[in-house]
Design a binder for these strands. Structure first.
Lengths: 224, 224
DNA sequence: CTGTATCCATGGCGATACTG
DNA sequence: CAGTATCGCCATGGATACAG
């Protein structure tokens, strides 16, 4: 695929960035992933061959640098790559405001739970071990139950019962939890209309939404 | 080409925007073009079939609306499309800062002169008719001479001698003028090192750079 | 863990011509 | 002016298996 034949800086930028998957890889790198398989988890539908190819592309473009630490590959954003945060944020805000409709094929419990895990507000949680169980309706049994644990500022996510006492259970459709996470709706509204049920003591039920919080896109104001 | 299978707003945004040429079409629309052939001029290397396809895509995505005025097609950005200005600006700034190297294939005298024409600071020009002649070195003769005219706040661009008295002649390589326009270098430096020559009266030579100015990307600070 | 190798089908896209 | 029509290549990228 050739370039655009234009001197316009935006066109030159797009020559690298408009290739399929590229911006999603950049997003993963900005989120802190740096090993090959960490990155794969963020783009599960991308084949490893293609990920490898894109990483080489990004390196050639000066956006990332590959180093090897203890025999382990490590991809890090260069200053040029770091500055793509502005682009990612602009795209994210626009997408949150104007691409509201999610299809069944956009939902992925693994991606959602992993994203919750990595940005969860641990400061809001109790200091002692606290376990939240998620039950996702209408999802393949194998990936419908998740346990999110926080203890000593350490966050863990399991898809098998870790066996600890469960503080509260959150039960909802995958779509609902996804929409809350994106900020398309709020915890308050979802709890009120019954699309999310939280079990546990009254005190706990009240604070669970604050424990989980919402994703980064939720702060973007929506169009009227 | 399928979607990414992700709920992430940025991924959803890229499902529409990462297709080849799409963002360049949006850029043209943001710049004010609205008729089919106006748009074509901004993306001369794009086939009309593909442009047509992309316009349909953008309409389906709610980014543009097609109307017909006096039997003339007219594409206008919706509010959603207007808000892509933030994305375009982020990409443009990043491209200006980090994709500095221009190849021969990125240069296009027609695109450059047209861009100058449409953003020239007419307020800086004299009120009476003023004609600037551009002579671009190392370019096919057919497209190496251009005349830029301003009179009564009306800007015109010709690629054949309009016959009016020429106020000043700007002579330079296409690459140099392009780099100045992008802000990769300044008028001052280019005049000083001789890569641009301006003929005309001493007073006129001094103000011609301000008449022409620089493109939008020139205000972006460059990395050290 | 970090990729490569191989294969194959799809369809994107470039080129050109043509039409109401 | 504003597109359609047609064609054909070849690169893209999805899938799977495998290797250092």
């Amino acid at each position: 695929m050739a370039g655009y034949g234009q001197f316009c800086p935006m066109a030159k930028a797009m020559e690298v960035l408009d290739e399929r998957w590229t911006m999603l890889v950049v997003r993963e790198l900005l989120a802190g992933s740096c090993h090959f398989n960490d990155l794969r988890r963020g783009v599960p539908k991308m084949s490893p061959a293609l990920l490898s190819k894109r990483l080489k592309s990004l390196a050639r473009a000066g956006i990332i640098e590959r180093t090897e630490v203890d025999g382990r590959a490590c991809y890090r954003l260069t200053p040029s790559g770091q500055e793509l945060r502005g682009v990612v944020e602009a795209l994210n805000a626009w997408g949150a405001r104007w691409v509201g409709t999610l299809g069944e094929e956009d939902l992925d419990p693994h991606l959602l739970m992993w994203d919750i895990r990595r940005t969860v507000a641990v400061d809001a949680w109790p200091r002692s071990r606290t376990v939240l169980e998620f039950r996702l309706d209408g999802v393949a049994p194998r990936v419908s139950c998740w346990w999110l644990m926080v203890s000593d500022d350490q966050v863990d996510l399991c898809d098998v019962d870790p066996g600890y006492e469960v503080t509260a259970v959150v039960e909802t459709a995958l779509l609902t939890l996804t929409r809350i996470w994106r900020g398309d709706t709020s915890w308050e509204r979802a709890l009120h209309d019954g699309s999310v049920r939280i079990s546990g003591s009254a005190a706990v039920r009240k604070v669970v939404p604050a424990w989980i919080g919402q994703g980064a896109a939720a702060v973007v104001p929506r169009p009227p």
